[in-house]
């Protein structure tokens, strides 16, 4: 025991401190400094005066945002779309995992997985190209298809009401492969004897799926959903920005907190107000993660985040 606190231990700790230094310094500058930088949410930020030199304005920036119609719209859109993505994404991934689990040939499972994971490697920019190929109003595939059966084409990039559905399909398409992996791993962990016993009792594959497979992964589905709910105040900026091509007529249904912050910063050039919205997002996001993690811990602490 004595040697643990001796000179060697001190030297080891000194070396380890040095090894941690790059990450320590990086996080200090790129993560903690911006947290303190959030004070500009309470300031009238001017580049020439800097963060410290800019004038305090109290809650003006928050007032500006929360009294605008945008506050409700972007908050509602963010939460509504995230719930759509979680519901559709989970359902699709679970169904696919259940189907995949019924396949016996190993090479076939691998082949299916390789194809369905392929979209996950794409950037949202490229998915934006694909979306455009479908929804280009004059020469896109959707309108050609509609025209083919005698319908009138839709000006998709001017029709805000259809975009929650389009975005949901895109999210499911891009993420289904990797989400499916999580549930498939859960299924392969089920004790094989259950299926054998059920087969002896005369249960068919469908009954086995209903009474063994699905109940066995229900805890996993619940925990994944709870954790996903912790993130409903954030959204994937790249998806919204590239798929809707930042077209103003689509804002009523597709403008979310992250895209609003970006525009407030880069288009309006209002750093203070933009930071105020960011602070609002971070604080609510923090509360959501703490709450959902507490729920997850009660539920099944093994899978909780922390």
């Amino acid at each position: 025991m004595k040697s643990e606190y001796g000179g060697k231990d001190f030297k080891d700790n000194l070396i380890m401190c040095a090894m941690c230094l790059p990450v320590f310094a990086y996080i200090l500058i790129f993560c903690y400094a911006p947290m303190f930088g959030l004070v500009i949410a309470f300031k009238d930020y001017r580049v020439d005066l800097g963060i410290l030199g800019s004038k305090w304005v109290g809650l003006e920036n928050f007032k500006f945002f929360f009294t605008s119609i945008d506050a409700f719209r972007v908050t509602a859109n963010t939460i509504y779309l995230n719930f759509l993505f979680i519901a559709a994404g989970t359902a699709a991934a679970v169904v696919l995992a259940l189907l995949l689990f019924e396949v016996s040939k190993k090479w076939l499972i691998k082949a299916y997985q390789t194809f369905i994971i392929l979209p996950s490697y794409l950037s949202w920019v490229v998915v934006g190209f694909m979306t455009y190929a479908f929804f280009n109003p004059s020469i896109g595939l959707m309108n050609k298809l509609i025209g083919g059966v005698g319908g009138a084409g839709v000006d998709w990039y001017a029709e805000a009401s259809v975009w929650p559905a389009i975005l949901t399909i895109a999210v499911v398409w891009k993420n289904i492969g990797l989400n499916c992996v999580i549930y498939y791993a859960g299924l392969t962990g089920i004790n094989h004897e259950y299926y054998e016993a059920a087969a002896i009792d005369g249960a068919g594959r469908l009954k086995q799926m209903w009474y063994i497979s699905i109940p066995s992964i229900t805890p996993l589905i619940s925990i994944m959903t709870i954790l996903a709910i912790g993130g409903v105040f954030r959204s994937d900026f790249g998806m919204f920005f590239n798929l809707t091509r930042d077209i103003g007529t689509l804002y009523p249904t597709t403008d979310v907190i992250d895209t609003y912050i970006y525009r407030a910063l880069r288009v309006l050039g209002n750093e203070g107000m933009s930071a105020a919205v960011g602070l609002y997002q971070s604080v609510v996001g923090f509360i959501l993660i703490m709450v959902t993690n507490t729920v997850a811990n009660r539920f099944e602490s093994e899978n909780a985040l922390f």
């Binding site: 996080i27 500058i29 790129f30 993560c31 903690y32 400094a33 911006p34 947290m35 303190f36 930088g37 959030l38 500009i40 930020y45 963060i51 992250d258 912050i261 970006y262 910063l265 750093e271 933009s274 930071a275 960011g278 602070l279 997002q281 971070s282 996001g285 923090f286 993660i289 703490m290």
Partner: peptide
């Protein structure tokens, strides 16, 4: 840093 972040604006200014 996984729970709370300064977000886009302070990072951009930094």
């Amino acid at each position: 840093t996984m729970l709370f972040s300064g977000g886009l604006v302070p990072t951009y200014i930094l």
